[in-house]
Amino acid sequence: MSEIPTQIPIKIFLVDNHRSFMDGLQMVIDTQKPRMEIIGTATTTHEAIEMAIQLKPDVILLDLEFDDTSGLDILPALLEKTKSKILILTGVRDSNIHEMTIMKGAHGVLFKGESVKEIIKAIERVHAGGTWVDNAMLGRVLGHNGKNRTTVPTDPEARKIASLTPREREIITTLLKFESSTNDEIAGQLCISKHTLKNNLTVIYSKLEMKNRVQLIKYALNHRLASLE
Rank of each mutant, 00 (worst) to 15 (best):
S2H: 14
E3I: 13
T6Y: 05
I8W: 05
R19L: 15
R19P: 15
L25E: 15
D30A: 14
K33A: 15
P34V: 06
M36F: 02
T43N: 07
T45A: 09
A52E: 01
I53L: 09
P57S: 05
F66N: 00
L72F: 04
P76E: 03
L78I: 11
I88A: 03
D94T: 03
H98F: 11
M100K: 14
I102M: 12
M103S: 08
K104W: 08
G105F: 04
H107Y: 05
H107C: 01
F111N: 11
E114D: 10
S115G: 07
I119L: 14
A122I: 00
V126S: 09
G129D: 07
G129Y: 03
G130C: 05
T131M: 15
V133C: 03
D134E: 11
A136E: 13
L138I: 07
L138A: 10
V141I: 07
V141S: 06
L142V: 14
G143A: 04
N145T: 13
G146P: 09
G146C: 07
T151K: 10
P156V: 01
R159K: 13
L164I: 07
L164G: 12
I172A: 08
T173Q: 15
F178I: 02
T182L: 05
Q189T: 04
I192R: 09
T202Y: 01
T202M: 02
I204V: 02
S206Q: 11
S206Y: 07
L208V: 00
M210W: 03
L216F: 04
R224S: 05
L225T: 09
